[in-house]
Amino acid sequence: MAGVLASPNLPLHPPVRKSAPGRRAIPWVPIVLITIALLYLALFLFVPLAAVFYEALRKGATVYWAAISEPDAISAIKLTFIAALIAVPLNLVFGVAAAWAIAKFDFRGKSLLITLIDLPFSVSPVISGLIYVLIFGLQGWLGPWLSEHDVKIIFAVPGIVLATIFVTFPFVARELIPLMQAQGREEEEAAAVLGASGWQTLWYVTLPNVKWGLLYGVILCNARAMGEFGAVSVVSGHIRGETNTLPLHVEILYNEYQFAAAFACASLLALLAVITLVIKTVVEIRYEQREKEFRT
């Protein structure tokens, strides 16, 4: 023992920082940071969300129920669903096709294509509606032809559906493209060598591997489709009972100072948003679980 202590090769300890507190001290920094973060989120998220439900139920349950079961509200809800029911599947098919072409093949102009697909994201909702008016409106390109054949697109349901398709266009594709790119092509090549056709490969090999990403994209697409306001506002005629989606109906009620009714309808949309977030979280958890399994 003495020999070891006497050895000149023992390392010197680095100087201890006197200011470092022991682990028992209160962690001030995390607490302060968490508080500020929560305050910020409360100011901009939690309070407004709570306000929707509060204002909706303030005048009591009867007023609430009357507001959402009133015929104009019902038809607004119906129209909202129709728009989503058409837009989401179409954009889903598009998303799968685009992701297949982009992820499984190499070709020139790929990044340009991806940028173009992202375009609707960067366009203001008002402009999204405007461009369809320019084509299908009375003074638009196809205006005269349409009125000749008595087909109404703008200020009617088809226009609303088109505008909804435009604003929700990239959602599914944006989820699938990076996901399918990250998964590579080997499984698809293996399927090809084993004799599978394109459809068989897509259905049995590719899609099951991206099912969580697909679901995620569909949920976001749907939330946006049902909640779109600006674009739909431009192409609708605000004709009560006919060309109003639920968000537009909320606006009308609000502008007529029917606040309780407006918030009642708004609360339905807020509920939809919360459900969307819940499903999204569940999907994320399942996806993380699955990834953890596969990494072993």
């Binding site: 968000p247 909320v250 948003a273």
Partner: peptide, 19 residues
């Protein structure tokens, strides 16, 4: 709270506006 961060993505803009 993590899930709620995405609220602005999921909530219709008109609802956010009146709220």
């Amino acid at each position: 709270i993590d899930a709620l961060v995405d609220l602005p993505f999921a909530l219709p803009t008109a609802v956010a506006g009146i709220a």
